[in-house]
């Protein structure tokens, strides 16, 4: 899906209490982006709905506190991430979906030519959702899925840029280790995971 251009999201908030755009416009402009961010974090459409609604509710209540240091979208993203993190993580048991045997993708070839198929997507998200601490998941979603800059991530998370650098690196290493450890091919083959039955904490 096309993402709105990052440079177009700065709201010109004037000194008066009246934002130049209506609340409806703000919601219309950012709703989809925020919903998608929530979905990438929690991977659940209903929870994404809840997070999105809560985000805009909190944003509306605190709109007077919004200042221009960050773009409106970054500010909304920060509320979204905090809302997500504040939610008690559901103790979900992995679902083991029995499916027909699928061919194992060839990882030995030129990486540029790897075709990420549906099954592989499942695997990639499975690791994101079930095998990483939430602060690692959040930073990977912000950087590698949503492609935010280091500065934007720092603003969203309320941490320094140097903290972003080290956390991002550790998160990528953790992700890589799981990719290797789980033998992604095994996941793809039968949708089972070496961790099957382990409850998410």
């Amino acid at each position: 899906m096309e993402q709105p251009a990052r440079t177009k999201t700065n709201l010109e908030i004037s000194n008066s209490d009246q934002p130049p755009y209506s609340w409806e416009e703000i919601v219309r402009t950012h709703q989809r982006y925020i919903y998608n961010l929530a979905y990438r974090l929690c991977n659940d459409p209903h929870e994404s709905d809840d997070i999105t609604q809560e985000t805009f509710l909190k944003a509306f209540e605190n709109l007077a506190g919004f200042r221009q240091e960050a773009s409106l979208r970054t500010w909304l993203s920060r509320i979204t991430v905090n809302t997500y993190l504040a939610k008690k993580q559901k103790r979900l048991k992995h679902r083991s979906i029995a499916l027909e045997i699928l061919p194992v993708p060839d990882w030995s070839g030129n990486p540029e030519r790897i075709v990420i198929r549906r099954e592989l997507r499942w695997c990639i998200h499975h690791i994101l959702q079930h095998h990483l601490p939430r602060n690692y998941r959040v930073i990977l979603v912000l950087r590698d899925l949503n492609r935010l800059s280091y500065e934007e991530i720092a603003t969203v998370l309320g941490i320094s840029v140097s903290a972003v650098k080290s956390r991002l690196h550790r998160a990528r290493l953790a992700y890589r280790d799981h990719l290797l450890k789980s033998g992604c091919a095994g996941l793809v083959r039968d949708y089972s995971c070496y961790c099957e039955g382990v409850q998410e904490l």
Partner: peptide, 26 residues
């Protein structure tokens, strides 16, 4: 190389969006 591959894998799913968006579309 392995780190680059990891990042590429994540980039490759960055077009992931919800299967059915239930929020109102205008």
């Amino acid at each position: 190389t392995s780190l680059a591959k990891t990042v590429r894998v994540l980039h490759a799913v960055s077009d992931l969006n919800p299967p059915g968006t239930t929020t109102k579309k205008e």
